[in-house]
Amino acid sequence: MDFILSVLSGAIGGLIILVFQKAWEFKDAKDQELKEQEAARQKLIISHDIHKRPVESKIVEHLLPGTSIEKMKRLLGVPDFTTYGKIFTEVSENPMDTNTYLYEFGNAHLLLTSQDGVSTDSVTISTKFDKDYPVEFIFPYLLEKDSAALGSMKLEKHLIDYVEKAEVNKTMRDAYFCIETYFGRAGRYHYYTFFGQDSDKVAEYFKDPDLKHLVNGSINSYCISGLSNFAPYISPFW
């Protein structure tokens, strides 16, 4: 009898331990599930807030023409807008079929293009005039200054001296100019196009069509392209 009671007692004790063990395993699994749900929620929050996140000005150095689309997505993530079709640019009369990739950040718009969908042909960055996170033009060998923030950056005279192509226009709502130049270091020559919206400078130009009137005009975006006469523009007010 004592033997039977001992066996039953051991069995009941083992069952109780098993129940507690399963309960702890269930609790651990539930805690892990809650952690995963919270992590997923945080990712959604980050995803929803991406348009408020500023982008570093130096990102352009890593997105120059010839950069792989794979690297572009690794650096910037999935584009906000992607399309393929004919694109008109301010410095060309002929449209070009290309892939376009648009990113919107808290302080800037980024527009990249690729004809083959493998590597980039151009990158355009446009300021959103965020005083806390200004977008700097970071290629000092093109400027008399080390750097300048888009929006307050001025078109310098020596850029006019090296102009490849220029376009000046005005509409009922807008007045703008774009100046394409050709610069670079050995083995890394690119076309730089500067876009500005300056009604006073444009008005002076139309009175006397000379590019000198655009000197010191305000620049709000620029494009670096590996192709001549191909500089897609994205408005700061897009």
Results as ranks from 00 to 15, higher is better:
230 F>L: 10
94 N>A: 10
180 E>Y: 06
13 G>R: 03
174 D>Q: 13
74 R>S: 15
29 A>I: 10
215 V>T: 13
180 E>C: 05
38 E>S: 10
128 K>C: 04
45 I>D: 08
234 I>F: 01
65 P>F: 02
140 P>V: 00
189 Y>W: 13
77 G>M: 08
126 S>Q: 03
16 I>M: 04
227 L>C: 09
213 H>C: 04
57 S>A: 12
90 E>V: 10
6 S>P: 02
65 P>H: 00
207 K>I: 11
80 D>N: 13
113 T>R: 04
28 D>A: 10
95 P>K: 08
65 P>N: 03
155 L>F: 07
99 N>T: 01
30 K>W: 10
72 M>I: 02
198 D>N: 15
174 D>V: 08
153 M>A: 08
212 K>R: 13
181 T>S: 15
148 A>L: 03
13 G>P: 06
183 F>I: 06
170 K>N: 09
94 N>Q: 11
27 K>W: 11
83 T>S: 09
53 R>L: 12
99 N>Y: 14
7 V>L: 13
73 K>D: 07
53 R>C: 05
181 T>L: 10
197 Q>W: 12
123 V>A: 06
36 E>A: 15
226 G>H: 03
10 G>C: 08
80 D>R: 08
216 N>Q: 13
196 G>F: 02
62 H>L: 14
224 I>Y: 02
133 Y>P: 02
138 I>H: 00
19 V>E: 02
166 A>H: 04
166 A>R: 03
46 I>G: 06
186 A>M: 12
197 Q>Y: 15
71 K>A: 09
152 S>M: 12
6 S>R: 12
29 A>P: 02
135 V>K: 01
122 S>A: 15
233 Y>R: 07
166 A>D: 01
59 I>D: 00
82 T>L: 00
105 F>Y: 15
16 I>K: 07
82 T>R: 01
45 I>Q: 08
73 K>T: 09
195 F>Y: 10
62 H>D: 14
154 K>N: 09
87 I>K: 11
224 I>K: 05
114 S>D: 01
21 Q>L: 13
112 L>S: 01
32 Q>M: 11
85 G>Q: 06
84 Y>D: 00
8 L>S: 11
127 T>Q: 01
122 S>D: 03
107 N>K: 02
59 I>Y: 00
90 E>F: 06
29 A>Y: 12
141 Y>D: 12
210 D>W: 03
7 V>P: 08
119 S>L: 03
189 Y>G: 14
68 S>C: 15
54 P>M: 03
146 D>C: 01
223 C>S: 15
56 E>P: 02
30 K>I: 08
214 L>S: 06
26 F>Y: 09
93 E>P: 04
131 K>A: 14
5 L>V: 07
179 I>M: 07
183 F>R: 12
70 E>H: 12
43 K>D: 12
210 D>G: 05
117 G>Q: 05
117 G>L: 02
148 A>Y: 00
92 S>F: 04
70 E>G: 14
178 C>P: 05
105 F>K: 09
89 T>G: 07
124 T>N: 08
104 E>H: 11
228 S>P: 09
187 G>P: 00
55 V>T: 11
173 R>H: 14
